[in-house]
Design a protein around this nucleic acid. Structure first.
Ligand code: FES
Ligand code: FES
Lengths: 144, 144
DNA sequence: TTACATGTAACTATCATAGTTACAACTAGA
DNA sequence: TCTAGTTGTAACTATGATAGTTACATGTAA
């Protein structure tokens, strides 16, 4: 199991819109950098738009940032592209046997632990902004 | 996306072996509590055995714990049943465009952040032992 | 009116999960 | 030694998500 690359692509898109801010970031342009199909980009941009992270309009070329990148954390992107449902990072087998002491209690015993772990993951993502990522890219680019 | 229920089933199996320690925990017995097929249980028990968590022998009925449950954390089970590969909780789209400043740097910029998040998740799982889960089950069972 | 973008639907290929059936290998007890 | 019962595995199926692809209606602006 792996969390969908929509997440990394979403970050990529936001970073590239920023770095290309003097140009026009069409889905085709973005697709060229990510190396995928423009329709895939448009789908993901639609999700970012739904979360209020970018501005796009039908017929008008180019996506723009709707917020300052320092106000967008990776957790925001993660939520926007919907790669993991609320409280459902871990799946729990359903229909355990209610006639068994373990079967009728293990879900209640396990779920809070799973939720805490998911929270820890998400908190970690919330500590990094997309601006941090862009700064890192710029730094790496200047060195090499 | 969701992490395989092999994980929750693995925890279930270990907890039930403990609670049923005076009886014989065959794959059929365990399957009755988890509510699945005995072959599914045998596959998962094989993984738990590979990680040194349980003892089983061909032809001999019943699985037993190979360690004290207080020495088995949920992280140990998680590793054992192989639900998430090392450093691969998040998938990153490959083949980004090397001619693009973002394309050629974003992987290096993102991967450490993803790894830190995965580590946070795993550390959280490491804080809970299967014994904690069993104790919780017993407590819930006595109250109700 | 023309050229070009976005938004979406429909479809495909690929893969992991979970379950199912079947059977060989093995053990222990009659 | 036979027999019954169990584990370990392979092979197969059904289901669902991912990622990509094509196509096209809708919309904008020169
Ligand atoms: S089936 Fe999940 S704990 Fe019993
Ligand atoms: S950062 Fe992933 S393709 Fe560019």
């Amino acid at each position: 199991m792996s969390i969908s690359s929509r997440f990394s692509v979403g970050i990529h898109i936001l970073a590239l819109i920023e770095i290309n801010k003097n140009g026009t970031s069409t889905s085709e342009f973005l697709a060229g950098s990510v190396n995928t199909n423009p329709a895939v980009i448009r789908k993901i941009i639609g999700m970012l738009k739904g979360a209020g992270l970018v501005k796009v309009q039908p017929g008008i070329a180019g996506a723009e940032l709707a917020k300052n990148l320092s106000d967008i954390t990776l957790f925001d992107v993660y939520k926007a592209v919907n790669v993991v449902q609320e409280k459902e990072l871990f799946s729990v087998h359903d229909n355990p046997n209610p006639d068994c002491p373990v079967g009728r209690n293990i879900q209640a015993a396990i779920v809070p632990v799973f939720e805490a772990a998911q929270k820890a993951l998400e908190k970690s993502l919330g500590n990094v902004s997309v601006e941090n990522v862009v700064d890192d890219i710029i730094k790496k680019e200047n060195i090499s």
